[in-house]
Amino acid sequence: MNDKVIVCEELTKQFGDFVAVNHISFDVRKGEIFGFLGANGAGKTTAMRILCGLSYPTSGKATVAGFDVYKQQESIKKNIGYMSQKFSLYENLTVVENIEFFGGVYGLSSAEIRRRSDRLVNKLGLAPEAKKLVGSLPLGWKQKLAFSVAIFHDPQIVFLDEPTGGVDPITRRQFWDMIYEAAAAGITVFVTTHYMDEAEYCNRITVMVDGKVEALDTPGNLKARFRAASMDEVFYQLARGAKRSAD
């Protein structure tokens, strides 16, 4: 039981008559890369926002890092990193200033921030841009920076909401290398995407259709079960019946 860092039971979120997340249940194990797949509007982001403590569920149970999503959101927030769909570092601050701010907010000491910041900037090859405003960086670099900031404080879990949207294939590949590195360092990765090639990189995946979990398994098992050659086909078979239009 102890290796389950996220536990969801019958989790539901309703906006008026609209059931965005419909009684979903799943567990995420420590250190795994957990993929959350679904078409636009399937409820991925809503579910993720509940798990991050940004949104109250309507019913059901869920714990993240052992903390309850109804009452202990602030404790959850100390233990997770989050990268939203919309780029959300400060564009009018420099690379280093953004790192310093978020590091400080998570309680790292100034010396620790400086040490990690230098290492990170060098690793990303951003040393010449360290004092440039984040707004002036190309999208691919912004995304890599945003991910690095999200795991800067060594969280137990990092939530990534469509982290590679609009990014070129080479950068996407590099991005996934970074995800693997984080997972190898013991950080559980919870990632939503609608790129099926990315789904193949995950240890286990969940396919959400119209707010419900339609399938949950390893990519290999899913392909076998649906007699499909690729995840693309699996997804197509599952999502074909979707009623919700894209948002």
Partner: peptide, 14 residues
């Protein structure tokens, strides 16, 4: 509007 509030809200800032 910028979306940065989301990043703030997910931190332990009081």
């Amino acid at each position: 509007e910028m979306g940065t509030i989301e990043q703030i809200n997910v931190t332990p800032i009081k």
